[in-house]
């Protein structure tokens, strides 16, 4: 299926480590390889601390990978510097989790939206209000909001401003880091609808990081599941509910409270917590919590292997063709 799609950005074996006190290192991302295609959404799910936000920050060139490379249309982002890097930033924009913290409280909405345009000299100062109104309309807000301050708006309205700001430079890729997580469900739904509508109109690629598996699988073409910095499984969004094979993905989905679930059945959950991300053991990162851990899992780290069309899993069970 990837033959017909236009590849925008490719992460190849990206690893990021942070030094921590006591001479230890924290491996936030380990050997992550993911692809972003034009007009498609890559969803990334996982528990807190699994490295999903770190990965997004590397894609946005806010952090540099220690190993591996991130290629934007064939060009290694780590090698970009100065003005070239600045020009490149127009192509990839970001929407943050907390829309209240993402804006300067002293700036009016029109200044917030038009700041990127002015930075890259795409409009003149005199055109600011008209430009702001145009983008407000795009995110389905009234044009008068241009003169307001962010604290005069609700959370959902502010998140729309965040999206409007990300749209101004006509990026090819928008990265959403828990962009809907702080919103109420009904608002979350309208924001999701807006994102999907914009994607259809402009063929934007999204990187959508979220801890809500149910939401991610409802809007992503591809879902990547991360655990302690490792990609455990990559699968098409429409198969996430039924087609997952990795025990971690199953555990993650099993612990989702669903309105259509069988309420008599006790909720599944893993009993212990994720192990410390510091000193990585050899073998599979999920071995300590996996209900089907085998001898080989303790020795050897499973590689991501294709097990179906657009479906990859890093699990020895899946590699042996023994998934149920």
């Amino acid at each position: 299926m990837s033959d017909t799609q236009e590849l925008i950005l490719e992460a190849k074996h990206v690893t990021k480590r942070y030094p921590v006190s006591g001479g230890r290192t924290l491996t936030a991302c380990r050997d992550v390889s993911l692809h972003f295609y034009r007009g498609r959404t890559l969803g990334i799910v996982g528990e807190s601390g699994c490295g999903k936000s770190t990965f997004l920050r590397m894609v946005a060139s806010l952090e540099k990978p220690d190993e591996g490379e991130i290629l934007y249309r064939g060009q290694d982002l780590a090698k970009l510097k100065g003005e070239k890097l600045r020009q490149h930033r127009q192509k990839i924009q970001m929407v943050f989790q907390d829309p209240a913290a993402a804006f300067s409280p002293k700036m009016k909405v029109m200044d917030i939206i038009c700041e990127p345009l002015l930075n890259f000299k795409r409009i003149k100062r005199s055109e600011k209000e008209a430009a702001a109104r145009k983008f407000l309309e795009m995110v389905e807000l009234p044009g008068e909001f241009a003169l307001r301050y962010p604290h005069h708006m609700s959370g959902g309205q502010r998140q729309r401003i965040g999206i409007a700001r990300a749209l101004t430079l006509e990026p090819e890729l928008i990265l959403c880091d828990e962009a809907t997580s702080s919103l109420d469900v009904s608002v979350q739904k309208t924001i999701t609808e807006l994102l999907v509508k914009l994607q259809r109109e402009k063929q934007i690629a999204y990187g959508f990081v979220c801890h809500d598996v149910a939401l991610v699988q409802s809007l992503a073409h591809q879902v990547a599941v991360m655990y302690l910095g490792n990609v455990m499984e990559i699968l098409p969004g429409d198969q996430a509910a039924s087609g997952c094979v990795h025990p971690y993905t199953k555990a993650l989905i099993g612990s989702v409270f669903d309105l259509h679930m069988d309420f008599q059945k006790p909720i599944e959950s893993m009993d212990d917590e994720a192990p410390s991300p510091f000193d990585m053991l050899s073998g599979c990162p999920f071995q300590s919590r996996c209900p089907r851990c085998m001898e080989i899992c303790r020795r050897e780290r499973p590689a991501l292997k294709e097990i179906g069309e657009g479906h990859l899993a890093a699990c020895h069970l899946a590699a042996q063709g023994e998934t149920e």
Partner: peptide
């Protein structure tokens, strides 16, 4: 508005 596993998909 609550997203469900295997439920309504936006795409």
């Amino acid at each position: 508005s609550v997203p469900a596993m295997g439920g309504y998909r936006f795409v």
